[in-house]
Design a protein around this nucleic acid. Structure first.
Ligand SMILES: [Zn+2]
Ligand SMILES: [Zn+2]
Ligand SMILES: [Zn+2]
Ligand SMILES: [Zn+2]
Lengths: 134, 134
DNA sequence: TAAAACCATATAGTCACTATAAGGTCAATA
DNA sequence: TATTGACCTTATAGTGACTATATGGTTTTA
């Protein structure tokens, strides 16, 4: 299987596949005589694993860490669960931050209606004066 | 006032101040004979405006747009309000995305307890098999 | 045979900074 | 007076995870 078929089968760009290879997330495949990369079913699985991790917004570093765990199948899995817990914590704290942000933005937006002049715009005024909480 | 004092008074790094100048968000100040930048109170206000916008996670492009509006004080302010509405929409859709993500992550995490071998880790298994919704 | 589709590498751009390097200026201290 | 330390200058590279572009070779199809 060549790079285009691999990429299509998992739903990424061919550039991304080469990028993952450079980053050490995908093992370098064999090459044809003309230099074309040739992939196996194991590459498909490996790339699909990366893709599922990325959909969950795990970083490439976290994915790398997971891959290292996979090479030691008889170690306890606590580190993996901890990695996921940490990631969940990050996601939750980002949600909280954005919810605070949303409140501030909505409150700022409420300080203006349309049909004013820019000079009198409540939004611009709120951004210019330092009446911001936090 | 020199760059260090300006930066401290608004709570950014001096590098960031120079960066904003290069990006056209902060007007180039006068220079002393030795080349040092000299800022006025108007620069403080301008930088504080940028900072408040950044806290609300407006992009530098959006801040630039707001600054352009400020130079035409007698235009209607609808564009400003629209800019903010769009930004709120982005923030909300990001919150929604992250909430979906959090659910998926929590469900994945629930498929494992500690004290298993990596081979049997429910988390790793969930990432390896394609049992993901969406 | 020629166009379309595919493959290769190398390099630069995205965003909003942040870090590093290498050096010039100024006031206070040993 | 010499030197330390805090400040300032510019230029360049790094961050993360791609994405875009340039340039050229190869394979498949019409
Ligand atoms: Zn994470
Ligand atoms: Zn308005
Ligand atoms: Zn925005
Ligand atoms: Zn586990």
């Amino acid at each position: 299987m060549r790079i285009g078929q691999l990429a299509r089968s998992v739903g990424v760009d061919t550039q991304t596949v080469r990028f993952y290879e450079r980053e050490g997330l995908l093992p370098p495949p064999d090459r044809q005589d003309n230099g074309y990369r040739v992939y196996t079913e194991r590459h498909v699985e490996r790339l699909a694993f990366i893709r599922r991790c990325r959909i969950l917004e795990l970083s490439l570093a976290e994915i790398h860490e997971l891959q290292r765990y996979q090479t030691a199948p008889h170690q306890p899995c606590r580190a993996i669960n901890t990695l996921l817990d940490d990631h969940i914590t990050h996601v939750r704290s980002r949600i909280t931050d954005l919810q605070v942000l949303e409140k501030q933005l909505v409150s700022l937006r409420a300080s203006c209606n349309d049909d004013r002049e820019i000079e009198a715009c409540g939004v611009l005024d709120g951004l210019s004066e330092g009446n911001m909480q936090q």
